[in-house]
Computed example of a mutant assay.
Amino acid sequence: MNLTEPYTYEAGTIPLLLSIPHAGTRLTPAVEDGLSDAARPLGDTDWHIPRLYDFARALGAHILIGTYSRMVIDLNRPADDQPLYTTATTGLYPETLFDGTPVFKPGATPDKAERRRYLDEIWHPYHRKLQDCLSEIKARHEYALLLDAHSIASVIPRLFDGTLPDLNFGTNDGLSCAPSLSETLAEFCRQQPFTHVINGRFKGGYITRAYGQPHARQHAVQLELAQCNYMSERQPFDYLPERAGQLQQALRSLVSALLTWGQQPR
């Protein structure tokens, strides 16, 4: 039986693609049956990111959202599962949660054939659509902007010390976008009330690194949000509109800054 609907996609009109790979909660039977009690709440999900960025629809952004949980397969890791960070991280098929707790009960990990299906029927379709969309944007606008949208709990000792900054931008140490776009991000950050860092603990995952090709007029930025600014970090992970409002305003300003940068002659 084929795995269905690995993503949802809404076509847009502006030269910006919003990629949301980790908001999905769909599970395959093999993964659902094998999850440990700690993993069953899907706490490592990028909760509510589509809702947080809902304003982008009215602006005309292209929106690509993964539907399967990262517990099935991680769309922001390379297909060969090579590690992206030298510090603690998770792989293409996560075996541990961010805090180091096992994802699966002993002996209940999906087998290699099952996981190969996930690669073929979830990972590859998402990435084909992502590249097709970027190609279409470039054909229409002569350049493309990719914003890869993520979030994470603000405190995870296994991954980083202390509390994560509110806004964590990654540009693969400046390689995934033009230098002038990096300068635009820095100026945006200086104008915000939120704490921020560029290329700190999160420099950009596979999507940012693979599709950020400024020489080909494809510019990619990852933004990892500290979840404390818009939701409860405890189960059931409720969205908190009274907190989210200010963050949404900042995200709207970010998209505006990216589009303004794109319209400048160069």
Score class of each variant (00 low, 15 high):
S19I: 00
N199Q: 05
Q222R: 04
K112Q: 14
N168I: 06
W261F: 13
P78S: 05
L240Q: 15
D46N: 04
A30S: 12
T4K: 13
T195C: 02
I122Q: 01
Y143L: 15
H22F: 03
P157R: 08
E142W: 07
A220K: 00
Q227S: 14
P50Q: 02
R201L: 09
L35N: 01
P50R: 02
R70M: 07
G200C: 06
D132Y: 00
Q82W: 00
K105A: 15
Q249D: 15
Q192A: 03
G170D: 05
L42A: 11
I198M: 11
R26L: 12
Q264M: 09
Q218Y: 10
I20N: 09
L254Q: 06
G43Q: 11
D120I: 07
N229K: 08
C177Y: 02
F188G: 09
G204N: 01
I198F: 07
I63G: 06
D46K: 02
D166W: 00
T89A: 12
S36W: 05
Y126S: 03
A178Q: 00
I14D: 03
L75D: 04
F188L: 12
T101L: 07
K105H: 11
Q222D: 04
T87F: 13
L92H: 06
Y211I: 00
L16N: 04
Y93W: 11
Q191V: 00
Y211M: 02
A108C: 14
K112R: 13
L251D: 10
G262L: 07
I137G: 09
G100S: 11
A178H: 12
G107H: 04
R190A: 15
A178I: 01
A79Y: 01
D33S: 15
L42F: 00
G43R: 09
A257H: 03
I20M: 14
H219K: 08
G245L: 11
L145V: 07
A23D: 02
P29E: 01
I122C: 08
L164H: 08
K203Y: 03
G245Y: 09
A61V: 07
T109M: 07
I73Q: 05
P193T: 14
A186S: 14
T96A: 08
T25V: 13
G91D: 07
S135T: 15
L92R: 08
N199S: 10
I20W: 01
L27E: 03
Q248H: 07
G174Y: 00
R116M: 11
G204R: 01
R158Y: 13
T8R: 13
I207D: 00
L167E: 04
M231H: 08
P102S: 12
A153Y: 05
A39Y: 04
D44P: 09
A11G: 12
R201E: 01
D54I: 03
G174H: 03
M1V: 14
L17F: 07
P214S: 12
A58F: 01
L18G: 06
L225E: 09
Q213E: 10
G100F: 06
M71N: 09
I20F: 04
P241D: 11
A39M: 06
I152L: 11
S36D: 06
A244Y: 08
K112T: 15
T171S: 11
L147R: 06
T163D: 05
E242I: 05
C189W: 01
T13S: 15
D238Y: 04
N229T: 12
S182R: 04
T13P: 01
G162A: 06
P110R: 02
F237R: 09
S135C: 05
A226V: 04
Q235E: 14
Y7R: 06
T67L: 09
L185R: 04
